[in-house]
Write a protein that binds this DNA or RNA. Sequence first.
RNA 1: GCGCCAGUAGCUCAGCUGGAUAGAGCAGCGGACUUCUAAUCCGCAGGUCGGGGGUUCGAAUCCCUCCUGGCGCGCCA
Length: 560
Amino acid sequence: MGRCQDRGDRGQRGVMKEYLREQLLSTLKKRHLLPEGDFEVEMVRTRSKEFGDIATNVAMKLASRLKRNPREIAQEIVDHLELDSRRISKVEIAGPGFINFFYNPDWIYTQLQEILEKGDSYGKNDIGRGKKAQVEFVSANPTGPLTIGHGRQAVLGDTVANILEACGYSVQREYYFNNAGRQMRILGESVRLRYLELLGEKIDFPEDYYQGEYIKEIARHLLEKYGDSLRDRADDPVFKDTAEQLIFEDIKKTLKRLGIVFDSFYNEKSLYDEGKIDEVIRLLREKGLVYEKDGALWFKTTEFGADQDRVIVKSTGEPTYRLPDIAYHKTKFDRGFDLIVDIFGADHIATYPDVLAGVKALGYDVSRVRVLIHQFVTLMEGEEKVKMSTRKATFVTLDELLDRVGEDVTRFFFVMRSMNSHLNFDLTLATKESEENPVYYIQYAHARICNIEKFAARQGLRFDPSADLRLLKEEEELDLIRKMAEFPQVVIRLHETLEPQNLAQYLTDLATIFHKFYYDYRVVTEDRELSLARLALVRAARYVFANGLKILGITAPEVM
RNA sequence: GCGCCAGUAGCUCAGCUGGAUAGAGCAGCGGACUUCUAAUCCGCAGGUCGGGGGUUCGAAUCCCUCCUGGCGCGCCA
């Protein structure tokens, strides 16, 4: 693991990229083609394999600065470029002036070899080695079951955490909640009223209380446990506390189904109890960043680019939500996280700049914070749009979705699209679509490989790492290796973008190439040596599928 | 009025930070199982990348402007 420098590019492909970049740079210098000022030799992906494995656009970028024909420049570069033929077997000029490089097949085999050697750890890197990261997500107050909307955030957050783990970070998954606010007070009251109803009292249940059936269930639970002894205990915290406890259990159970387990639950209330709220006020006061007006305390967010200052303590003496949020984020820094990821729904788009301004005001390095905003899931019941509200109990729970389409499909569905896009979720089509879900396409590839290995074992053939990989000469075989070799770069890119759909996309592409190979060639043939080489090939593919699916939190079945 | 996100095939969406002929899955049409799993493969059809300007060798991608949809813009959280 020692060879990793602290740069983006790693692995064989990265090494090749650097090699070509250096050779090109020295050729440009030699031919006095290097312009004044900044100039980067850029290596780009090729559109398809007929354009080689990797290309550069330097000739085109130089054309305007040198006022010369790009193809002519490309020709001059190629004529004077000295390359190791063991690495690059062919160089071509194509299109408007691309210089395309073709890897020597030997080089491709070394990439396959690397996958086989690394196995389960292939694709991982140590960008985050020795660093602590925290991902905060879901963070729904325990006022009701998780909905499909929460599901998107839950899966997104957990997948981001998986990505960071694959990059060597030590990751903490945290759930932030508040059990002391108005919402929770109403929750407790809602339960109490339903309890009284069960005791036969006539209750006028307010419209803005929690309407869900689960409130009645909690009330029944109280009735069984305490009988009618709570009838006149209007101020007893037991209503709220029991509701909180039962709902949290429910939430955790749902998350567990998706394979999501939080390392930490952070209660907003503790910020008050431990004096962290007052501390923030004191610090901001010392820095002269707050002032009083109209009986309220204002934070000078305008000094951090906002259009107006914000109230952090109301004239009633109560803090606004901003203050605990800032104090909470302060604890993230104080707890020593090198990378802090916040995942919010689109409705919080306007609040996070205030929070960042707050921690910045306290002297922290805001560049450690990555805020991921995801758009909402629009739930469709056929043509009908369903407005979801926990309060009104017009929601479809995450559990119901899991019952209908299953855990793997749910996870894949929520990360196969960009978080920036609205997700149209037609419930009536969910089950039907799940039968054709692309997640099966990927899982099937993995299962097929497992089956091949079982079949081969029955023929007395087992994966042998010393197989002669040079027997893999077919285009489909080389395509598969090329695609697999991209995997470490994909993970590095995931670390940069934190956009899991890139991985979903990659695995789908890889599965396409694998299935095509499978259809065209048999792994187990009469030719023992070739069979061993192909067994090594599919073993490598199995590693990549399994490693990729693991990051997505999706099972890699051996049989389907 | 202001901010953020989106607008790409009939539908749902990708498009790797400005590259070569814009892709996939559904849906439609036509083919492929005596074979290691047909949850697969092959082919056909489907596009003024919301409209209009601009930047440059080159734009779905960057800038400006307009249109449409979503989410926000509180001494609510």
